[in-house]
């Protein structure tokens, strides 16, 4: 195929533990390390491998967000994406709005495949890929742990509650990645230098003519109740006694 689009979201890094603001108005994200959403990074890695196998000619990384998102797109370019598109906005978007924006990009770029993570680790929504597939009226293969392309058909192994489900979808299609699809490569310094010469096209969100206004009202944020630390036991006898006292074991 000619082209794969990979959608990336900038999120608070996987290793950072976030805090809720004391007044419940949001989550503290200022000054925290930001990264490509790990699931999206896996999606990008998969696209790069397909291109390296000669199954695609070009990998285009697309993101939506403020100017800072260019940092993550630069990382994507350093990993090996050929070019990038940033739909610039400072507004918080719901997944449906993101899907509408991505749909516009997909219509103008006409990729043979769209890859993205199954969920973003900030809002944990797990919606955007499915919504994009619906708007585009194309197949979706979510939670992919294996992806094989043959002609105009993709065979995808999906991680589902009951085990592994294999489905076949006609291309173009939307595939969302699960954790075990691959292990993303590390970026080496020369590639970071090379990536500086690659292009990031910045598109103003207003130019797309998409209804991206939020519908849902977020009224407050709370810190979840913490499970209090219990006690330690020293022996198996104590453990078994404690479980019997609670009526959990006979």
């Amino acid at each position: 195929m000619q082209k794969i689009i990979v959608c990336l979201k900038r999120v608070v890094d996987y290793n950072v533990r976030i805090r809720v603001k004391p007044d419940g108005s949001g989550v503290v994200t200022e000054g925290l390390k930001m990264s490509i959403n790990p699931f999206d990074e896996i999606a990008l890695e998969e696209a790069l491998r397909l291109r390296e196998k000669g199954q695609a000619q070009e990998v285009v990384a697309v993101s939506i967000g403020p100017e800072d998102v260019q940092q993550q797109l630069r990382t994507a370019l350093a990993m090996g994406a050929d070019r990038a598109i940033l739909v610039q906005t400072s507004a918080e978007l719901e997944p449906l709005a993101a899907a509408r924006i991505l749909h516009k990009i997909v219509l103008s770029e006409q990729p043979g495949l769209v890859l993205l993570g199954k969920q973003a680790i900030d809002d944990d929504c797990n919606q955007t890929g499915q919504m994009l597939a619906a708007l585009w009226d194309r197949p979706q293969a979510t939670f992919a742990s294996k992806l094989e392309l043959k002609g105009t058909v993709a065979t995808v192994t999906r991680e589902v509650d009951a085990g592994l489900e294999v489905i076949e979808v006609d291309l173009p299609a939307v595939v969302t990645s699960d954790l075990r699809l691959n292990e993303p490569r590390y970026v080496k310094l020369p590639e970071i230098m090379k990536a500086k010469k690659k292009t990031i096209d910045v598109v103003a969100i207003d130019s797309l003519g998409v209804d991206a206004a939020p519908v849902l009202r977020v009224t407050r944020y709370d810190t979840p109740p913490v499970r209090s630390k219990g006690g330690m036991v020293k022996t198996v006898d104590e453990l078994v006694t404690a479980l019997r006292d609670r009526g959990l074991l006979a």
């Binding site: 809002d123 709370d222 810190t223 979840p224």
Partner: peptide
């Protein structure tokens, strides 16, 4: 949200 590290009311 955030792997259960925050709860949001919608």
């Amino acid at each position: 949200i955030y792997a259960g590290n925050a709860l949001v009311t919608i």
